[in-house]
Design a binder for these strands. Sequence first.
DNA 1: ATTATTTATGCAAACGTTTGCATAAACATA
DNA 2: TATGTTTATGCAAACGTTTGCATAAATAAT
Lengths: 342, 342
Amino acid sequence: MSSPRITLKDLAKELQLSPSTISRAIAGHPAISESTKKKVRKKAEELGFAPNSIAAGFRKKRTHSIGVIVPKIDVHFHSLVISGIEDLAYREGYNITIFQSKDSIDREKEIAKILQNRLVEGIIVCLSNETKSYTHFKKLVKLGVPIIFYDRVPTDFQANKVVIDDFGSAFKATEHLIEQGCKRIGHIAGNQGTPIFKHRFEGYKAALKAHNIPYNPDLVLETQNLSYEEGAISARKLIALPQIPDGVFCSNDYTAISAVQVFQKAGFKVPEQIAVVGFSNYPISQVIQPNLTTVNDRAFQMGEAAAKLLIRQIEDEDNAIDFETITLKTDLVIRESSLRKK
Amino acid sequence: MSSPRITLKDLAKELQLSPSTISRAIAGHPAISESTKKKVRKKAEELGFAPNSIAAGFRKKRTHSIGVIVPKIDVHFHSLVISGIEDLAYREGYNITIFQSKDSIDREKEIAKILQNRLVEGIIVCLSNETKSYTHFKKLVKLGVPIIFYDRVPTDFQANKVVIDDFGSAFKATEHLIEQGCKRIGHIAGNQGTPIFKHRFEGYKAALKAHNIPYNPDLVLETQNLSYEEGAISARKLIALPQIPDGVFCSNDYTAISAVQVFQKAGFKVPEQIAVVGFSNYPISQVIQPNLTTVNDRAFQMGEAAAKLLIRQIEDEDNAIDFETITLKTDLVIRESSLRKK
DNA sequence: ATTATTTATGCAAACGTTTGCATAAACATA
DNA sequence: TATGTTTATGCAAACGTTTGCATAAATAAT
């Protein structure tokens, strides 16, 4: 039922030409006359010739393929980043091969090993949260495979990185609460072993300091993974304090939303009594009542930037670049959950 | 800085053996003695040899790669399906290359063309909503590339499909509302040009009929793409009717949620006055207040099933299977938005 | 008409594996 | 000792392209 594949040679035989001529004709080489080009294209169409890009890639040592390793595809942030990567890569003639580390260092290592085998010309990675050492990636770098890290990036290791300004974003978010008149601002924090969450915490503290608000550790609650449930637990702790906060900055939208709900159920008005700001601008933030003020972390742009940087490095002949770090702008999306209108 | 790649030949020269022996030693061929195997493996490790799987794939005519075409990666349903595909494919030694059609038939055709070139051994597709003809896929089938369609599948075209029972799911959802005491049940429907949404509508009607509830077209509102905004508009229309419904079945969760919010804002109690059921079990359905009753559409399992089916066809030597359709079970996740207790 | 230049095509090697077949060495059998 | 069998390795071709170089034919310059 499936007819055998047509190759260059078949075409050549059919047209009484050499394979090289066919190859060049199809590639549009200038040394081939228009008349033969036309003939070749016609016959190719007729026989349903599809060039074997594996063979071509093998010969030219190119795959036009880039590898992407994410912790989990179905986390909205990552799927948005992937979307950005795919979009740019597609425009540039690359395709993307995706792997999930499932936040397992072992799986990440396995994947790195698979990726050594010339399948891809470059790699984009968001580290698993178990990753502490980077030898599996260093090996790849040594083989000449460019790597771009995004979001969760290695700290003590020179590399290409695309990140957002977590510190600055948290600073802006906290400052916004201050400007809305908040005096006692709480923080629901992510795992402080993860740099990005630490930076957000630092940004929060810096904003308080800049506005002469004393830092009160009782108002800060660290969570393991910023889950919806942990958000609720933290929120309940906050309203159990002798002096409850009048504003809360949360390190992601899930905890922010569950905090809002806990506050509302306990009879507090959001934002009038407690103003809340989240982080990431998840779709849900526009659906929840009141709509959530949050930091737009530009996931799609992050993917685009990572892909652009990677492709530049792949195609950079003389390999002049050493390492590059791109920090993306974020913006605070002000919605109802924090706005105590003037 | 990047050392040149080590090849089989390099290893062979280094060890005074032939490339074939090296190849077999690494592959664990039984005809090679343990002692040489050990030597080869040691040297390979030492020189950092990474087999060129492109060359191997070229020689063996295998890529162990499967192509996936989705409308948009960042739609949660699709990212979950992809996650299921990746998970199963990874276990079976395949990697996945992802393309977004962006719901554009032209882009879908372009992608199909790219995929002809032996990059992938099989393809998993969710059709763009512009797709009406399937010639671009038929060409691939003729070349012997197995294709599995999921969710949005071709109608008038023999093919492998993985779907859920939209009709039955909608029937169950509507029946549930009836069991909760609803007498006037509305339906916010998806674009009736898309089979899955039509089936859901049919299921809704069938459930009414089965319970001797007259079908009332005034209670059914068709939307273009089941957006949050369209949900709100439809919900407002429903409560503007002379006789408002006491239950609504929505073809997705977004419209269900915005309907709930419109009803609440208008002073109706959910579920007491109007019970609401959605479709898809998006994460948001567990967050919204009241939690949303919805149909779990098993996106992850759909991905797994599609990948499993595809790999079976790829590896099926004698190509005995013609076409196969898998229909996955769904279940109704009953939560607060429809539950008028016991 | 001879030589130089341009234009269009072909030859053959190469990319790094895998694999059927041949073969040499070691061992077992008669 | 001669023959048969097993074990371990090598040879060489093949997979389908691409590409530097050579070459033949056609055209231009002398």
